[in-house]
Write a protein that binds this DNA or RNA. Structure first.
Lengths: 215, 215
DNA sequence: TAGATTGTTAATCGATTAACAATC
DNA sequence: TAGATTGTTAATCGATTAACAATC
């Protein structure tokens, strides 16, 4: 293969963290080997999809009639998802949502490390949340440059989102995780992931409606 | 059509709130009519997809050479998504994330109304967040039954998630919006939407990796 | 050996995109 | 009338599912 495969299918990429969670739960229950059929059942997806996703993720060979060693398969998926090499991130907008994310211990498992929060409000500037300092937005650019941070989490009010986004891009941030409802514009050299509350609610409401209709 | 179409394609359903946000932003800028081409550009999707989604959502006829009246199309999409008839919800787990969601004013736009929070911690019980009372979990079942609430938002620590989930189901909740990383088990009569932080991060990290690789 | 499971190949399905007639 | 846009139909694409040979 020359200059091979650019991107794992998006759908596969989204399922891998789900498998990982299932596998870790199984391991906690003392499971030592696991088959694709078992993963499929636990993650509630088709078994063909599991097999294909695992091979895409480059999981070490499983043994026919046995399956995969649970430690190995977990290690392989984590390494594929990059959970081992820590990614630093800054967080902009230390409101309740921002504080919730700064306090969340689970990010460490995913290799994400929020190094500091930034805000414009004097009440939070200088405080520490989960041990991480909150700095004024004025210090954002120099901090990002000095620490060579590539990822940012955006949790400002929607009105400020684009302005802060522009500032982040200017500072050299290359990936923005947007928790605001604003539709942001970023240059093509910057990755953007919208955490879309309205989308999720639309899906859930529609499912609920169908369930209630059936009765 | 007899007993027609059970479910709008999931992909379409997810895009509609995006269009809605774009349309509202346009209206704020004084736009009065809009074409599917303009929506497609703003939402950054293919124009065929927009046309198809709009027709699925039952948007009132657009006029060739003119497009859609912006007030009408917004009204149509909102009504299709059920933003007009308010859905009550309870929230379980009034930690930082729970408080952030209870404080979020934007839910009103989506027709979602959190009527109360529930927690086991004495420190928050009895307080009010954004005017909404926090009650002990012991009162959950009776409240859900009395107020006929069908939807719940789950923001507990992962350890308690399944227990609280079971309690919600027992109380008659039919749709659970799960913000915890736990993989929940619910009966088939209950809708479940996982807000999957790990999935989003995997997608963003992968995009970032590709962008950095190109340089 | 028999049988369960892997890993891949082929078939199916659904969603996206392109094309175009109808319309104002 | 000319031309832009709608709304739908057909073509393409990709992802899911089924099937099966290889293997332990």
């Amino acid at each position: 293969m020359i200059d091979s495969q650019t991107s794992v299918a998006l759908a596969s990429l989204k399922r891998l963290p789900v498998y990982l969670k299932c596998l870790k739960d199984m391991r906690k229950d003392g499971v030592e080997t696991v088959s694709s059929v078992a993963i499929a059942a636990s993650a509630m997806v088709n078994q063909s999809v599991v097999k294909k996703d695992l091979s895409l993720a480059g999981v070490s060979e499983g043994k026919p009639r046995v399956g995969y060693k649970i430690d190995e398969i977990i290690e392989d998926i984590e390494s594929f998802l990059g959970y081992n090499n820590t990614k630093d991130a800054v967080l902009v907008g230390v409101g309740r949502m921002g504080q919730a994310l700064m306090s969340y211990k689970g990010f460490a498992d995913y290799g994400l490390n929020i190094i500091a929060g930034f805000d414009i409000c004097d009440k939070v500037i200088g405080t520490r949340i989960n041990g991480k300092i909150v700095l004024p937005v004025g210090k954002l650019e120099s901090a990002v440059e000095k620490l060579n941070v590539k990822m940012a989490i955006l949790t400002t009010p929607a009105d400020n989102a684009q302005i802060m986004c522009d500032l982040l891009v200017k500072a050299g941030i290359r990936a923005i995780w947007n928790f605001t409802p604003a539709r942001l514009e970023v240059p093509p050299t910057v990755a953007l992931k919208n955490e879309n509350i309205a989308e999720s609610l639309a899906v859930l409401s529609s499912q609920l409606q169908q369930i209630l209709k059936k009765e």
